[in-house]
């Protein structure tokens, strides 16, 4: 995001390092870079948990930071303080130095257990409104967001209604990547032939940066995206405009997407008249329509059925092989379950 305010940069620059400074920075920037400036319930809970863990752990860390200098000064060679060279054990001291860490870890374990279950990325958020379904596909080096209900898709631009939960289903068309919107909440890995899930929500309207966290080659640092939380009416406008102004996601476009390259390059290929020049800017691209079952086809390494359209021709059929069937012998669902069994990932 380009408009992070200069005054915050300058003032933070002279300040010493430290979390408070981060906090201040986060507080007065409109870019919402961090979960310390949370824009949704998940990130807010994570901020709470973050400070809680620091506070609890400090009960064993602070005494070290305070007592060590004291010991060093008091028992320095040459000062005539008490000297007990043969002293090597005390029951009381041992009780304290084992007991306190044990207690601290018990407290930490309880909060970690609770918060981890509560903030499970797979767990739907509680809300009166049903979640918006978004399917995310990581390409090298851009993100494709598919809106299956709306039958549209978008590159590097995720528009969501504020105040409504979003339910993500994610995969990678390439190597492993990490999908992350810090201001909203958890990151989750996306993997080829596998799907993962994530639930987030933006409380208010706003613009947040999203990133890839798992290195995947020279375009890695450019694999960023914009998340825009907008009012429900504005979301509908976004859908309408995308249907109107976007290009269709056809076989050609898919081939271009799948090629290694940044979104800026993709845009040059598919919409040359609007190519982005500025380096820091995030190139986006809108797809007005896409084949039904596109996401599942990508997961299964099958060719999408280019004739079926999501949102137009009724319920999507999945995984129909067409011109170049790449089907391996195994059934897709069996594969996914095997993988889940080997490493504990929950798919399907």
């Amino acid at each position: 995001m380009s408009t992070s305010s200069l005054h915050s940069t300058a003032s933070v620059g002279v300040r010493a390092f430290g979390l408070l400074a981060v906090f201040a920075l986060a507080g007065c920037s409109d870019a919402h870079l961090t979960f310390l400036d949370p824009q949704g319930p998940v990130a807010a809970a994570q901020r709470h948990q973050f400070w809680l863990v620091i506070a609890v752990t400090s009960t064993v860390v602070l005494p070290v930071l305070v007592l060590t200098p004291w010991i060093l000064v008091r028992y320095r060679y040459g000062r005539q303080a008490a000297y007990r060279p043969q002293w090597g054990f005390s029951k009381l001291a041992d009780l304290v130095i084992w007991g306190v860490p044990v207690l601290v870890v018990i407290v930490l374990a309880i909060t970690a257990w609770r918060s981890t279950l509560a903030l499970d990325p797979y767990k739907p958020l509680t809300s009166d409104t049903p979640p918006l379904e978004v399917q995310v596909i990581g390409f090298d080096w851009k993100w494709l967001f598919v809106y299956p209900e709306q039958g549209i898709a978008s590159v590097n631009r995720l528009v969501i209604p504020a105040g409504r939960p979003v339910s993500f289903e994610l995969t990678s068309a390439s190597v492993m990547q990490g999908f992350f919107i810090p201001a909203l909440g958890s990151q989750i890995d996306v993997m080829n032939r596998m799907t993962t899930k994530l639930h987030l929500q933006a409380d208010e309207t706003g613009t947040f940066i999203g990133k890839n966290m798992q290195y995947n080659g020279t375009g890695f640092h450019q694999q960023r995206f914009v998340t825009q939380a907008v009012a429900p009416a504005a979301f509908q406008r976004f859908v309408d405009r995308t249907r109107q102004d976007g290009v269709p996601l056809d076989a050609d476009a898919y081939r271009a997407l799948d090629e290694r390259g940044t979104a800026a390059r993709l845009r040059q290929r598919l919409a040359p008249e609007t190519a982005v020049a500025e380096r820091g800017e995030i190139a986006t691209l809108a797809f007005s329509a896409l084949p039904a079952g596109f996401f599942d086809a990508v997961v299964a390494h099958e060719s999408p059925n280019w004739n079926a359209r999501d949102g137009e021709d009724g319920p999507p059929e999945t995984g129909t092989d067409q011109d170049e069937p790449t089907n391996r012998d195994e059934r897709r669902h069996e594969r996914r379950n095997t993988q889940a069994a080997t490493t504990g990932s929950r798919q399907s």
Partner: peptide
């Protein structure tokens, strides 16, 4: 530590956040 809290990915050859 601060950069991490500000969401900067490891292994980034470049970045775009003035902060």
């Amino acid at each position: 530590y601060a950069l991490g809290i500000l969401g900067m990915p490891r292994r980034s050859a470049a970045f775009f956040e003035p902060a």
